[in-house]
Computed example of a mutant assay.
Amino acid sequence: MTKDIASMVGVGLRRPHHDFFSQTPTEMGWLEIHSENYFRPDSVSRNALEKIRQDYPISCHGVGLSLGSVDPLNKKHLQQLKSLVDAVEPIMVSEHLSWSSVDGQYFNDLLPLPYTEEALENFCRNVAQTQDSLGREILIENPSSYLSFDHSTMPEWEFLIEVQKRTGCGLLLDLNNIHVSAFNHGFDSQDYLDAINPDTVKEIHLAGFTVSESDDGEVWIDTHSKPVSEPVWQLYQRWIQQHGMRHTLIEWDSNLPEPPVLLAEAEKAAMHAHHALAATFPQETAL
Rank of each mutant, 00 (worst) to 15 (best):
T2K: 14
T2E: 10
D4E: 15
A6E: 03
S7M: 05
S7T: 06
S7K: 08
M8A: 09
V9Y: 01
R14Q: 10
D19T: 15
F21W: 02
Q23I: 03
P25R: 12
E27W: 03
L31P: 02
H34E: 09
S35M: 05
E36R: 07
Y38I: 10
F39Y: 13
F39W: 08
F39I: 10
R40Q: 12
P41T: 10
D42F: 13
S43Y: 13
V44S: 12
S45I: 07
Q54R: 14
Q54S: 12
I58D: 00
S59T: 04
C60A: 14
C60N: 00
S69P: 11
S69W: 08
D71C: 12
D71R: 15
L73G: 07
H77K: 06
L81K: 05
S83E: 15
S83L: 14
L84F: 04
V85R: 02
V85C: 03
A87E: 09
P90M: 00
M92L: 10
V93F: 03
H96G: 01
S98T: 13
W99Q: 02
S100H: 01
S101C: 08
D103C: 04
Y106P: 03
F107M: 14
F107W: 15
N108K: 15
L111T: 08
P112Y: 08
L113H: 10
A119K: 04
L120D: 03
V127L: 03
T130Q: 04
Q131F: 07
L134W: 04
G135K: 12
G135P: 12
G135H: 13
R136H: 03
E137F: 01
I138Q: 02
L139D: 00
I140G: 00
P143K: 08
S145D: 11
L147F: 15
S148E: 15
H151F: 11
T153H: 08
P155D: 10
P155K: 12
W157F: 04
L160V: 06
K165Y: 13
L172T: 12
L175H: 10
N177P: 09
I178P: 03
H179E: 04
H179N: 12
F183M: 07
F187I: 14
D191L: 11
Y192D: 04
D194R: 15
V201A: 07
E203V: 00
H205I: 03
G208F: 06
F209L: 07
V211S: 12
E213M: 13
S214L: 09
S214M: 07
G217M: 13
V219Y: 01
D222I: 04
T223N: 05
H224R: 09
P227R: 07
V232R: 13
V232F: 13
L235R: 03
L235D: 00
H243W: 15
G244R: 13
T248R: 02
L249E: 01
L249D: 01
D253H: 05
N255T: 06
L256E: 14
E258L: 11
P260T: 12
P260F: 10
A266F: 09
E267I: 00
E267Y: 00
A269I: 00
H272E: 07
H272R: 08
H274K: 11
H274Y: 13
H274S: 14
A278R: 14
A279Q: 15
F281P: 09
F281D: 14
P282K: 07
P282F: 02
Q283Y: 08
A286K: 15
L287E: 05
